[in-house]
């Protein structure tokens, strides 16, 4: 346990500053942006609307179709070539599954709810920011939901569990100002339904003990309750704004 002073001075259970706003894309049925530090995700929701191709339709309920896109200039380093790649497709799939269990689309058979998420800037934690933005946008669109889905990445840096790593922490050995005991950095994105505490997205890459995994998930879960409150406030602010 040697990582005591985080590179940007945050506490271990502290995220970067979060700014969330609903109703930012006029043409969409629901929309939001979610900024956490420099990471900046937009989400637009269209639907429920008829699903094409028809063979994908589900006669029992509507489905969510999630698309995660990085703007070509959004990341550190070289330009990202536009168009789907393996990473974006996988993130879209796991994000969709993170949201599926809270939306109730039984009243909308054969339809699709399209969720388009674009990252204007990605400084780590982009899939979690995308899910947070998408969840606000779904609520803004009036899609029936049991709860918000909140998401945040936990991480293990030099054997210490921390929340919401940024780019430099994800590459800690390179940026470390102190002696490093463990070269390993783990990234553990977690999405959670705050009212039940159930986890709807869990991934990890790195090398850690199983106890560290559980500690990280617990810490992320606690924070998700706070993030969900910020998300709900974003939706509320939108409709308070409408009244004026």
């Amino acid at each position: 346990m040697t990582y005591k002073n985080r590179l940007d001075g945050r506490k271990n259970n502290e995220t970067r500053q979060i700014i969330a706003k609903a109703g930012v894309i006029k043409k969409a049925d629901g929309s939001a942006y979610f900024k956490i530090g420099k990471t900046w995700a937009y989400a637009a929701v269209y639907g429920p609307r008829e699903l094409h191709p028809r063979f994908m339709q589900n006669p029992n309920k509507g489905i969510i179709r999630y698309s995660y896109i990085m703007m070509p200039f959004s990341g550190m380093g070289e330009r990202i070539r536009p168009g789907p790649n393996r990473r974006a497709k996988e993130i879209s799939m796991v994000s969709q599954k993170a949201l599926n269990s809270v939306v109730n689309l039984e009243d909308y058979p054969n339809t699709v709810v399209d969720v388009v998420v674009e990252l204007a800037q990605a400084d780590a934690g982009s899939r979690c920011a995308g899910i947070c933005a998408a969840s606000i946008a779904l609520a803004d669109a009036g899609i029936p939901m049991k709860d918000m889905v909140a998401a945040v990445a936990a991480g293990i840096v030099d054997n210490t569990v921390c929340l919401d790593l940024d780019y430099e922490e994800e590459h800690y050995p390179e940026f470390a100002k102190e002696k490093v005991d463990s070269e390993h950095v783990a990234d553990i994105p977690v999405a959670c339904i705050p009212s039940t505490g159930e986890i709807t997205l869990l991934q990890m890459d790195g090398i850690i003990d199983s106890t560290q995994l559980i500690d990280a998930v617990k810490l992320a879960k606690e924070k998700c309750a706070e993030i969900a409150e910020i998300q709900r406030q974003a939706v509320r602010a939108r409709y308070e704004g409408d009244k004026k």
Binding site: K38, P72, F73, E78, R79, A120
Partner: peptide, 26 residues
């Protein structure tokens, strides 16, 4: 400068049209 990860960027808003442009060098 809305996107620090890019070498240059700008957001332009005109009525209900809003565009982000970014520059990447290589």
């Amino acid at each position: 400068g809305v996107v620090e990860m890019a070498e240059g960027s700008a957001k332009v808003k005109c009525g209900n049209t809003e565009v982000i442009a970014g520059v990447k060098l290589k």
